[in-house]
Structures are given as structure tokens and as C-alpha cells.
Design a protein around this nucleic acid. Sequence first.
DNA 1: TCCATTGTGGACCATTTAGTCCAGAATGTG
DNA 2: CACATTCTGGACTAAATGGTCCACAATGGA
Lengths: 194, 194
Amino acid sequence: MTKSVSRAGRPRSFDQQVALGDALDVFWRKGYEATSLDDLTEATQLSRSSFYAAFGSKRELLLHAYRRYADAFHADMKALAEEHDDANAALRAVVKAMVDARPDNRGCFCVNAIVELAPCDPELAELGRAHIQRMCALLEELITRRGTRRPLARSLAATLMTLTMGSAVFRKASVAEDTLKSVQKQALGLLDLG
Amino acid sequence: MTKSVSRAGRPRSFDQQVALGDALDVFWRKGYEATSLDDLTEATQLSRSSFYAAFGSKRELLLHAYRRYADAFHADMKALAEEHDDANAALRAVVKAMVDARPDNRGCFCVNAIVELAPCDPELAELGRAHIQRMCALLEELITRRGTRRPLARSLAATLMTLTMGSAVFRKASVAEDTLKSVQKQALGLLDLG
DNA sequence: TCCATTGTGGACCATTTAGTCCAGAATGTG
DNA sequence: CACATTCTGGACTAAATGGTCCACAATGGA
């Protein structure tokens, strides 16, 4: 993360955020270990030196990408919820979005990273836990807002989050779309929104 | 897979099934890419040549390990169900066992393999799908046996399987055990077995 | 127009990777 | 005992890995 507080020098010829996005994309599709530096420099169109100057190392880049994805996901769901005045409508929209299909079968980037790396990378495991907790908290708040009491709301939120992550695995295995749909329906049923 | 239909020669000095189990263990803990051949030969106590003679390649070994794990898991759950005469009791036991904790946080081997490899390895993706379907079918049968009708039973089975896989991800992120417990409770609640 | 400063391309490096190969050891059979 | 057959250890290889380095290009300020 080079910060330019300086007074001269050649300006950077690429957008670091765009490059981060491109890199995220590769990690998302191929996973961490299976992504080589050649893959990354090709995807970002960066030379090796620019790459290392900008991101430090492959692992640091992955952590950046993770944070970026998790933040965006959380923000998106929060924004989606805020589009609805009715708490139940908000909840329905969020649950649908979370379980819903992506065009391809790349699943959820967080799930991918957690499953591949958490056991051997405590820092990423911590990020994973934080993401899960944050999403659970968001769900819990929506659930309480429509009147469900705390202990049950917490339990329901955790269950919905579990369903979301399980769906991501289903999707990676290319399980039939109807199956995902019926899981989604059950999830809404849990909230009496069937 | 060396089959000895021959008439002489030095007998094999190791048990292939034991070696397969040891290898499975490493893959389970570290994932596929992160497991090196040195890891495997150390874990199995095999020399490189014996290793290749016995298993062909790293990838073939993984596929063997996958089949072995999936078969054992399915067989275990089936056996567990058969210990109970009452369909509801069987269902409760199976769901508990599926969502339940392992001593460490290694999660479910199938989930690990699917998430890491399915997008780039169609053969493994197929094995993954087959495993999911088989487990869903087992659950569905138990659910119908206690009286629930087909379309709903199918949907519930898929949902329980999703919860199982999601739980495995939670576990890899070392989410608090209470959270898992409450998810388990919700799962049983879905079946009116709360 | 210099010059300090920063970015860039590509050669380079040590290490690790999955996989091969062969000489020799161990065994059952005749 | 001798032999055919199989197993085994470890040296070896070619390729790929993540990461470093440096000469040079590009830029803005004085």
C-alpha cells in the first residue's frame, strides 16, 4: 500500500482499486494456492515489481481482497435492507439475495477462503469469524426489528447464515437450481415468510 | 491399484488401506494444493516409488480418499439410523451427528474438497454432487418414513444437508460452539423435533 | 531544462513441486 | 539353492513457484 505524500516522481499508471478487483476475481475463481503470481500479474496487467510495490505479497493481497469482498457484501446487504420500510420485506429481500444464485458457480469468496485457509492461517480465520459475526448481527437486528425476541432471533440469524454458506457449497458442486430454490423457501419458512 | 494375481515376488510391506487412511487425514487437515508429496510420503511412511506404485498420482489418491470418506460417512449415517426403530428418533440422531462437532476444526472432508477443487475438476465435482445427492436421499427417506409427504420431505432433506455443510464451514472458522448448538436445534425444529 | 523521485519491465534466484528411474533388497516358488 | 518377481530407498529431473533486483523510463517541481 504505497501512499504518495511525496512531492514528485512518476505517477502510478494503474488504478490500485481496479487491480485489487481483478485479483479478487482470480482468487475467487481459482482459490489461493491454485492462483500463481503469473495468474495475478496477467489478470491485473501489472509487472511483478509494480505488483509487489502495490500489494507486498500474494498473501497480503489475499487479505486485502478478503476485506474488500466482505465489506462490500455486508454493505450491499445492509443497503438492500434499508430499501424496505417493512422489516419483514427487508428480511425477505436479504435472505433471498444471500442464498441466491450467482451467474457462475464460484460460490462465496469468504466461504472459499475460510475453507481453504482458515485452519493454517489464524489471521484469515479471524477475518472469517468477524465476517460471519457481522452478518449474523445484521440478520439478528432485522429479525428483532420485526418483533422476534432476542435469544430466538440470534438463533435464527445463525441458522440463516449457515444456510447461506451451505448454499455456497451446493453451488460450487453445481447442485440443481431447483434444490437451491427450495432451500431458499425453507429459509423463508423459518421466519414465517414462506 | 496394484492387484497381485501373480505367482511370486516380494510381498507388500504396508497396508494400502492404512496408507490411504493416513493420506486422507493429511488432505483433510491441509487441503489438496497445500499438501505436498513429502507430506504424503511422511504421513504414509511410504517411499516415493511405493507411493506411486500404489496410488498412481496425487490426484488419483485424492479421488480414492474422497470416495472412501464419502462412502464411510454415508454408511455411518445409515447405520446410525438403523439403530432406531422410530423414524423420528433415527432422524434426530442422524441430524445431530451430521451437524455435530468433530474434536478439531477440520470440518467436513467433502466440503473441503468441493470448495477447493470442484470448479476446476469436473470429476471431483461429480463425486461431490453424487455424495450430496446420496445424503439427501437418505435424509429424504427417513423423513418420509415418519409420514411427511414427498415434495416437502425432499425440500427438508436438502435444507438439512445445506445446514450440515454450512456448519462445517462455521466450524472451520472456529465459530463458538453454542452457535453450532443453536443451529442444530433449529434444524431439529424444522422437523418438529425441537 | 535538470534533477530528485517514483514506476516499470524483465532478467534472475533459490526453493519447492509432482513425478521418474534404477540398482539393489526381499520374498515365494520350483 | 537359484531364480523370477516384486518392493523399496533415494538420487534425479524439469517445471513452476513466490519473491528480488536493477537499469531505465516517466514524471513534476525548481
